[in-house]
Simulated assay, not measured.
Amino acid sequence: MTIGSHLEEFHDLPVHRFPKSVEDRQGAAGLPAPESVAWNITVDAYAGEEGWKEAFARFLASVDTEKVRALVVGAWNEVYDNGPEEVVEALVAAQDRLPSLRALFLGDIVMEECEISWINQGDVGPLLEAFPELEEFGVRGGQGLVFPPLRHERLRSLTVETGGMPAEAVRGVAGSELPALVELDLWLGTSEYGGDSEVADLAPILAGTRLPALKYLGLRNSEMQDDICAALAAAPVVARLDVLDLSMGVLTDDGATALLTGQPLAHLKTLDLHHNYLSAEIRDRLRDSLEAEGVKVDVDPDDAESDEEEDGTVWRFVAVGE
């Protein structure tokens, strides 16, 4: 599976694409109220007549940015070769123009523009430092991604979508102090695309001490899903969760059995395991043991994957890789 469509909603707002320079622009009078939408600012990824900084400058000149609540950064120029350094620089420079900004997504880029594991990213720390009132932050792409350990008082939702999340970035998230964070969603990916983290790198997240408000934990799209489940079987953070999302990865009966034989999960509202390599027997055991306790268990057999074998080697794949 690849990412084939842009965000349509962000921060509970409909996404509205700010007109590109090559399109028919209606002027400020034809634009929606600045606080009513999440503004997507994007340029043609290749051979475009305008750079992202120029498009952003037009946005600043056309919209009452003091009222803007959410921004979505789409493609920048030559995304296969360039990272978002100029984008980050422009956003940081405009921080005083965006006092109401509460949500920011960096890299709403789909496969026609650049596959997820080929998106060049960079250091997102300056964005979180420049916008201390942010409540929601998301980033797509793991190549070159830097997420330094930091403290952010207001952030409630953090999403990192990758086909392979660098271990140093995983450790940066895990080492951050995020006292208001309610939702954490990490797509850890595979070693083939730079996902070189180990379960040990997740230890501070699993302990939960730096995330006292956490209710949704997604550790997904991972080739080490079974090992993650084994660690979660006794992880302190699980007891306070409403939703545990272990979907999109290489989950087998071993991982599911670890969950079933570990600490109680009856307090969860949802256990999401869609896209899995589970047997029918284990799927039934999960449903029988947890749905009777009121837990919604997503193990739809239509989402079950089949092993692929070649020359005696069994191949299993995460949902979003390249």
Rank of each mutant, 00 (worst) to 15 (best):
L244P: 07
L244A: 02
L244D: 02
L244F: 08
L244G: 08
L244H: 02
D245L: 03
S247M: 05
S247C: 09
M248I: 06
M248T: 08
G249C: 10
V250A: 11
V250I: 13
V250W: 07
L251M: 11
T252I: 03
T252M: 04
T252W: 03
T252S: 08
D254P: 03
D254T: 13
G255S: 00
G255E: 00
G255W: 02
A256N: 09
A256L: 08
T257Q: 07
A258H: 10
A258Q: 00
A258N: 00
L259H: 10
L260S: 05
L260P: 00
L260F: 03
L260A: 02
T261Q: 14
T261I: 02
G262A: 01
G262K: 04
Q263E: 10
Q263P: 09
P264A: 02
P264H: 08
L265C: 01
L265H: 07
L265N: 05
L265S: 06
A266S: 13
A266K: 12
A266E: 14
H267I: 06
K269I: 10
K269R: 15
T270C: 10
T270S: 12
D272A: 12
L273W: 07
L273Y: 05
H274D: 08
H274P: 04
H274E: 04
H274F: 07
H275M: 06
N276H: 15
N276Y: 03
Y277N: 03
Y277L: 06
Y277D: 08
L278V: 05
L278M: 07
L278G: 07
S279R: 00
S279L: 00
E281G: 11
E281Q: 12
E281K: 11
I282E: 01
R283T: 07
R283E: 09
D284H: 15
D284N: 14
D284M: 14
R285C: 02
R285V: 05
R285F: 05
R285M: 09
L286T: 11
L286M: 09
L286N: 11
L286P: 11
R287W: 04
R287V: 13
R287G: 08
R287Y: 04
R287K: 14
D288F: 12
D288S: 15
S289N: 06
L290E: 02
L290V: 09
E291P: 05
A292L: 14
E293S: 12
E293K: 12
G294Q: 09
V295H: 01
V295E: 01
K296I: 15
V297M: 01
V297A: 00
D298H: 13
V299S: 01
D300G: 10
D300L: 10
P301L: 08
P301H: 07
P301M: 08
P301C: 04
P301E: 11
D302L: 15
D303L: 10
A304K: 12
A304M: 07
A304C: 11
A304Y: 01
E305P: 02
D307H: 14
E308W: 15
E309N: 06
E310M: 13
E310C: 13
E310L: 15
D311L: 15
D311M: 12
D311A: 15
G312T: 04
